[in-house]
Write a protein that binds this DNA or RNA. Sequence first.
DNA 1: ACTTTATGGTCTACAATTTAGACTATGTCT
DNA 2: AGACATAGTCTAAATTGTAGACCATAAAGT
Lengths: 165, 165
Amino acid sequence: MSSAISAVERFSRYQSDDAQSEGSAHCPVRDVLDRIGDKWSILMIMTLATRPQRFSELHRAVRGISKRMLTQTLRDLERDGLITRHVFPTKPPSVEYGLSALGQSLLEPMAALIDWADHRYSDIHDARARFDSAPCDAARHETDVHRSAMNIATSRKAATRRARQ
Amino acid sequence: MSSAISAVERFSRYQSDDAQSEGSAHCPVRDVLDRIGDKWSILMIMTLATRPQRFSELHRAVRGISKRMLTQTLRDLERDGLITRHVFPTKPPSVEYGLSALGQSLLEPMAALIDWADHRYSDIHDARARFDSAPCDAARHETDVHRSAMNIATSRKAATRRARQ
DNA sequence: ACTTTATGGTCTACAATTTAGACTATGTCT
DNA sequence: AGACATAGTCTAAATTGTAGACCATAAAGT
């Protein structure tokens, strides 16, 4: 736990540095997080972790991704040195993607996250159900200011769409 | 390292289960990852890790987020039981957000990721520079099929915009 | 011989998400 | 009175992402 605290402190130091300089001096942590926190990157890395795969294989494996995003995600990960790209001069040329050493090294911390997701999933699931079936804004609105429908609605839209597929 | 391997295996099992059932039976891991992997959630949790904060404080702390996204992210995290929301009936009512126990528990695995980002940042940075100044598609194109500008361009657009702020 | 299939992408049109910023209501400070 | 702060919400505009047609080539199926 002490390590968690120190990481938080380190992060918060970066954050405030960032806030002061206003410029492009940015938190390496945020920089990296922005990259791997973009919906497809983690999925991609985890998928490539089992074995190197080709473009079309990946397209089939990571369901829901468009070719465009697949291309872009792969390109970005390659740029950051997390994955490698190998072109085989077969007749319809085939391209194999795989994790680089750097990419491999990301697996360890990623595993911690996966474990957490796996262990705590039921808690999250329960919390979600509780929230959704709540007597609603009872607690939310002591002060009844202008109430309205709000089309944010806990982005259940997105959740639904995700489930629909 | 063995733990990393087992996590990868667990993930890949979920993935293939998912591929078969076609339906909405989804990988808890992906479900959770989709939530915390959405650009603002991790930032939010890390920011709240230092201390509970109010809406406007968060808006100032997490630079670049719009109020709309702030509201939505907070709502989603609350729904998932990761953060708590407390309304104080002061006259312009103030609302304080903080990490729940579940949210706290996420700090540990998150710290592993932060550490990784911190240690490997220079590697990534170097890889990026190398890639950007590369003799380009030398290795990329043995087979010179239809070449074109491609407006994906490693999404340097986004990178630039991010830096510009 | 002709059609289908597969390869790795790219491109376009459209759909979804996200941002910027105006606006709300009420109370304190100047 | 006017400015500022509180927590959001709403709208319009910009950005991002998806679906799917398309490219050239070759092998396999019929």
